[in-house]
Amino acid sequence: MNKGHYRHLLRALILVAGACLVFFLLRAFLIPRSFGKYGFFRGDNLKEQADIPVVHGNPQACAECHDEQVKMIASGPHAGVPCQDCHAPLTQHITEEGIVPMPITRSYALCARCHQKLDARPKTFPQIDFQDHVAAKGKNWESEDICLNCHRSHNPLKKK
């Protein structure tokens, strides 16, 4: 066998090696470093997702400053209602610039969200037909904070 045939083999070998080199270089370049760390995905993304700052604070955090209100809520039928539902997320209250007053909604629309009588609501859940309820008591429907004339939002069944 003469030398010329080995040249052919060598050329083929170099071409294959070159193709492999290009393939693996591209692969190394395109596949992120952390790929496969936790599974078939870019592992660093888990950390990125976990590092997104929270907006709603820990529900227990409110009691640190507003112990009185939290106790009042806990003693009434609104015990299950989280503070941040009717007010706003904690991070809108405690900001980098300091403490910003929480928005306080007095509108009946806020109460109606849960207590407007609807067919789809569970029958055991306390709900009222707002117009009937207000008209029966001879009150002015137009006033925004109509509910708060008689009810305390933190403990609605306690007499005002």
Partner: peptide, 8 residues
């Protein structure tokens, strides 16, 4: 010539 490819 083939070594770098194999090593990679």
């Amino acid at each position: 010539k083939t070594l770098p490819g194999a090593a990679l």
